[in-house]
Amino acid sequence: MISGTIFDIKRFAIHDGPGVRTTVFFKGCPLSCWACHNPEGQRPGSDLFLRDERCNACGDCLEVCQQAAISQSDAAVHVDRYRCDLCGACADACLRGALELAGRSVSVDEVIAEVERDVVYYDESGGGVTFSGGEPLFQPEFLEALLQESRKREISTVVDTSGYAPRSVLQDIADMVDHFLYDLKLADEARHREFTGVANCSILDNLNWLSEHGSSVMIRLPLLPEVNDDESNLSALGRFLSSLARLHPVDILPYHRTGADKYARLGRSYPFPQQRLPDADTIATAVQLLEQSGLTVTVRGETYAVE
């Protein structure tokens, strides 16, 4: 039985494609975007969350840690992330939920059983399952098996991806995906590399192929002031998108800081502490720039009304 690593299954997901959906979050991502809001999705293995506000320094975790990776001060515990081997014993011992392991290995059957629970809601709403992450294409066999099983059960499928994957992976799954949510950030390769850690040529090529292939695709564009909101970037993206075989709608996702807390819980520093939030003008300008390329643009799934 094929299995994979996920960090969450979220039911009543209502922003990850049409209708009421269940979103399966794959763990592991080849990108490391500055603005990542699910940093626990980046590494392929497990991660340990430590929520200081829930810890009352009871010391239960110290006793079970075989690596002596946990130390204690008056009000909180500290995890030595180099020593920690992510065995999860401390999280099991922590009844207050201050320590929690993100990431678990699950079989295709387990995931599908969970997904199937909400079939009545999918039927009623035209929803289904969304595979997100992390990067679902980063675990291709697992994804393919899940898509096959979903297909068998006539559950509609959405894949939420950065598009960074070998073409063959995309080719293998494209016909089993009803709808892609496809992230685009930057047109310029050097800046893309700086911001996400990888080059964007395969991302753009894959999108080109998907468009030609006839797949249903919605472009998702995280909007970050001073990173990708400039006219040259947005116009370049607009030109690229309007050059594809078909015109795909674009949904702008204004940057938010919900990822910052998660970085802290992972013991990592937030790569982007000074990033400001996009204001209404920034968003309106971005909408206009993209619309100039003949694209249909929404913001967080809604038509954007310029005030």
Binding site: I14, G19, V20, V120, Y121, D123, S125
Partner: peptide, 11 residues
């Protein structure tokens, strides 16, 4: 959101 609410109740 309103549609999802309707879906929830109908389900």
């Amino acid at each position: 959101g309103m549609s999802k609410f309707v879906n929830l109740v109908r389900s």
